[in-house]
Design a protein around this nucleic acid. Sequence first.
DNA 1: TTGAAAGCGCTAACAG
DNA 2: CTGTTAGCGCTTTCAA
Lengths: 329, 329
Amino acid sequence: MPNIREIAKRAGVSVTTVSRVMNHHPYVKEEKRERVLRAMKELKYTRNIQAVHLAKGYSNMIGIVLPTIDHAYFSGLVTGIAEKAQACGMHFALFQTGYDPLKEKEALMSLKEQRVDGLIFCSNALSDQEILKWQEFGPIIFCHPTPHHECSSVSIAHDQAFKEGLEHLAACGHQRIAIALARIEGTNSQTRLQVYQEMMRSLGQDIDEEWIVEGKLTLFDGKQLFTEWQEMKNRPTALLITNDDVSAGFLLEAQRHHIKVGESPAILGFQNEQLSEALGISSIEIPIKRMGQEAFDLFHLSLKGEAPEKRVLPFRLIERTTTVLKNNR
Amino acid sequence: MPNIREIAKRAGVSVTTVSRVMNHHPYVKEEKRERVLRAMKELKYTRNIQAVHLAKGYSNMIGIVLPTIDHAYFSGLVTGIAEKAQACGMHFALFQTGYDPLKEKEALMSLKEQRVDGLIFCSNALSDQEILKWQEFGPIIFCHPTPHHECSSVSIAHDQAFKEGLEHLAACGHQRIAIALARIEGTNSQTRLQVYQEMMRSLGQDIDEEWIVEGKLTLFDGKQLFTEWQEMKNRPTALLITNDDVSAGFLLEAQRHHIKVGESPAILGFQNEQLSEALGISSIEIPIKRMGQEAFDLFHLSLKGEAPEKRVLPFRLIERTTTVLKNNR
DNA sequence: TTGAAAGCGCTAACAG
DNA sequence: CTGTTAGCGCTTTCAA
């Protein structure tokens, strides 16, 4: 592979001039520019991007930290990020953590090593606090709500959505409501639990411990959830499920057992993917792809030195067949 | 950020010694090693990976070229690749092409620029021939069968699977069989069409043009496919569908129309994801994750200078409810 | 407009 | 065992 010196020699100019041509600097006499261009063509020259990056001090690459790419939620997110990144000529690397804090640390190390210019965090085994310590090495964007003032984040009004979901189920006449959490939206299920508790109190309903189910993420988990539901001693009449793969699994397993989902049990999902539409699952739609796009925007703004910003995206409750309002209204 | 020189100064040694410590070279006196280590700790030193890469001449990064990450087929593939890559301490970047040849070229450029050490190609807008020209800049692995001798590839015995799929449908008593292709497994649907034609000839069945459907990839496409099927004048009694998201869409839409899938129409899918199991779709299982793993292995072998290798992975026909053998056997 | 030369931060051959 | 020194390939002052 020829280098810039060889091009310079062949074109009869200095390396500086070659560099100028490559970087579209003004002040290069047309004739020399052409000589350089010709030399580059003849030698099939391509600049060594690593050398460029070393000299310039950045990598033109962003890191996306997520538990796994093998789930519609995260691949949707990445799609959004990628769209925007591509438009800026930036590349991206994936760091899959499986929620392992050590893996997250490796991603942070990559930032410090300058392998990437910044990080978008969609995994959260480490505490926000811990992660934010690394901000001095480059922008870090969170994809979940965070109280910390000194960082940018984009998120769904998740607790609000959660609340409205519960209200919807209540409006359908349910009191004995279970929740199945996915851990996608952060470790802060704390708030959600509070919301849940408050709502149940206002309904005058005691909560049974078995109504709070965690770690459900896949279709398979959903099937299992149905089984667990069947075996509950104090069986709830409705379930709020924070991921639609899980809702789908629940619904399909119910159908297999010839149990109709709607009046009771009722289920309300989150995310509204193609599958929930096809199955007629009532769901809270969250704009996951847009979340990715905005995450990248925030990264880009941070890079330009703008102040941190928190963005909260809207959601939308879509009633279909797995929930039925009381009094037909 | 401190650099190696500052560490050397602080530890009272040369930069070489520092470098040696970092790279776990033998022949460093214990006392000096400790001085270096201490200095690194005190200054919170981390090596600049870009400089390392420039000096060493590689990037420790692999590029994965695919149409989109937002589909179970490809995210499964990436999962497999990532597992192996992580075990080798390699990082990876994604290049999403949407089957755009220009985007594929950009990925190839990244190889030449030495942004990545190699490429795993799961997108194929460009011809194999064209892509292989870039092999001089680093290993390129194909995830589809290719006749070219000078490159490594891993693939499913896709044509064989396709053939057995057709045979299965024939064994179920079908003659009027349609096929829906997804373009996931390469532009070479040529061979598959041949297989199809031969099979139909041997069944003494003329092919209706409308029985060959292309470009079906998503659940939504599957719903549409059902509609298209209903509107066919010469309606086939069975469909071989090369992607299970599509089969699922077809099945769900059929159910919505209260049409039972099994005897007729029968459908046979490909890929066997969780969804097809949950829906009871007969499917040809292909080990997509393993394909990713082997792709990375092949990359790794190429890097070590091993000769190119073609690997063909097995498949497995799984009968469920959407196909029914004739004579109950 | 142009070029010489000093970096960017690390590695490795070579000499001791 | 250790240090000197010349790279890796490109960018960017600075002076002309």
